[in-house]
Design a protein around this nucleic acid. Structure first.
Lengths: 112, 112
DNA sequence: ACTTATGCATAAGTTAATTATATATATATT
DNA sequence: AATATATATATAATTAACTTATGCATAAGT
């Protein structure tokens, strides 16, 4: 993922947010969607994505539904009730993180 | 650090930015400064801080200067020329990261 | 015929953290 | 006087989230 190490730790949040928006998605679709909306800035590799999806499923945040399209297998993931709640939590954490980091970048504390 | 995993990967950037502002600082001072400016949101633990400082030094981004104050040892760190350049790069990466994540949080792409 | 795109999966290695421990002096509290 | 908290640095063992590499399989483009 990404060119900088900062993305480490944010993959789960990204997946959850996308599923909140799109109801259900399959793995490959997620990688393409992220590439599209970030204009190529963020590339989700399979080695990161699939283990992450499996973990979120194991935690009860996602439900899976298999489907065969054009003779190719797709695994559609969607948020569970628990997953929806957790998505809100993760997004709040992300916003808190961004606020904190902007406090550090924008040092009004150096003037005082 | 922090309560969420998002901070993973941003410690180096934080250290570099603080040193850019304050010229020279010692480890313990960094932990206190971060605690202060983030109002307790972000706690830098020693186990994370000192290895990070040593690594930044090994990479040639920081210079060290020992000093004894009140019979206690302090290791003051300051940016090298290379470190100053790298600080700018890391901050640009951080801003790019924040922009990207805000694109994902703020999904105008779901309307189209 | 060959490459690229679609689609999922896992194993080995890396790295930045956490957690725990260690040492030592100074100051505040009971 | 004894004890706890603050100041100051350090490292070792473990964990977690990645990267990199590999593997399989079908569809579409050149």
């Amino acid at each position: 993922m990404g060119n900088s190490k900062l993305y480490k730790g944010s993959l789960n949040t990204i997946i959850l947010k996308l599923l909140e928006e799109s109801d259900k998605m399959y793995g490959y679709e997620i990688t393409q969607k992220v590439k599209e909306i970030t204009k190529g800035e963020l590339i989700i590799t399979e080695g990161a994505l699939y283990p992450a999806l499996h973990k979120l499923e194991a935690e009860g945040l996602l439900d899976v539904e298999m489907q065969k399209v054009d003779n190719r297998l797709r695994k559609y993931y969607k948020l569970t009730g628990k997953g929806l709640t957790e998505t809100a939590n993760r997004l709040a954490e992300l916003e808190e993180y961004i606020r904190t980091m902007q406090t550090i970048i924008n040092p009004n504390w150096s003037i005082s």
